[in-house]
């Protein structure tokens, strides 16, 4: 399927799993799992007493339950931990209600904030997540609790999909968009239409006027950066700013966005794609500790 291939190109990462060699799951008191089934990718994070023991990251298939199952299998692969050892499992993300092995589901908003708090540390206050089909902006306190959030999943503008449509229109491989958008003599005026449908028409007009492809890319990247800026403005930006999600890898948008915001994004050694699943596993851990989770 053409659609599928395009996505794979865009989200240029390989399906992977990781295991923490310093942890012996046999010693763990509480084992929790978070499974994040997103529209494009799914992750499973296995935690032993609140520490990441193993995780997996893979593409979401057409079926949420199956994607959740595959993510969990890949996460446990090579660990010798039996599934029955899991005390509590939480589903999150777009397909969260369709995670069959989950004991409960928690929204991606709550899980993302908690996961970002874990990955970036307690200084994180504003989390921006730009996914394939949505854009979330979350503010949280020093404990990782959400204080303000919004999620835009109605409009393609400001999401990975919007960028995909443009890359397609200009026949530029999506992974090259960021670099090429800087190969211009002078920063052009941003594309003025927010709507992706109308922005496409506008771009066609610009090309006809003689603009180079890279200039049109630059104009769209800065329009997208600005668009995302206006979204986070609504919740207010505080220092301790972290960007997660697929579009975080697109320099063309991110550098223009952070320039407008005036705050440098935080860095981490962790794979930021596991933020949601890690948050879910942490919630599981906290719930079991509070005696609210199942404990066999």
């Amino acid at each position: 399927m053409g659609e599928e291939e395009k996505k794979q190109e865009y989200w240029r990462w390989t399906e992977s799993n990781w295991k923490n060699p310093d942890i012996k799951w046999e010693d763990a008191k509480i084992v929790t799992v978070g499974i994040d089934v997103g529209s494009v990718s799914s992750q499973a994070v296995v935690m032993t007493d609140g520490q990441v023991y193993a995780y997996s990251n893979m593409r979401t298939g057409s079926d949420s339950p199956e994607s959740a199952r595959n993510a969990l299998n890949l996460g446990l692969e090579g660990t010798s931990m039996p599934e029955s050892r899991i005390d509590y499992c939480i589903g999150t993300g777009y397909g969260r209600v369709n995670v069959p092995m989950a004991d409960r589901s928690i929204t991606e908003i709550a899980c993302h904030a908690r996961g970002a708090h874990f990955i970036y540390g307690p200084e994180v206050r504003t989390v921006l997540d730009i996914g394939g089909q949505d854009c979330k902006a979350i503010r949280c306190d020093e404990k990782g609790k959400v204080t303000n959030f919004l999620m835009n999943d109605k409009c393609a503008a400001g999401t990975g999909r919007g960028m995909e449509v443009f890359a397609d229109l200009l026949s530029v491989p999506i992974v090259d968009v960021g670099e090429r958008s800087f190969e211009v003599k002078e920063e052009p005026e941003p594309v003025s239409s927010i709507c992706v449908v109308y922005a496409k028409t506008e771009a066609t007009g610009l090309l006809r006027k003689g603009w180079a492809v890279n200039e049109v890319l630059a104009a769209y990247c800065s329009a997208m950066g600005h668009r995302i800026f206006t979204l986070i403005e609504r919740i207010g930006i505080e220092k301790g700013f972290a960007i997660t999600g697929g579009l975080a890898k697109n320099r063309g948008v991110i550098e223009r966005l952070t320039k407008e915001i005036g705050v440098e994004p935080m860095h981490t050694e962790w794979d930021t794609q596991i933020a949601g699943a890690a948050g879910a596993a942490l919630f599981g851990y906290a719930l079991v500790q509070k005696g609210k989770g199942r404990r066999k």
């Binding site: 204080t147 303000n148 959030f149 919004l150 835009n152 109605k154 409009c155």
Partner: peptide
Amino acid sequence: MIANYGYKDGSGDYFI
């Protein structure tokens, strides 16, 4: 917590 439900599209901001 301030929970913003709704969206922003090309025509404007619609949040409760």
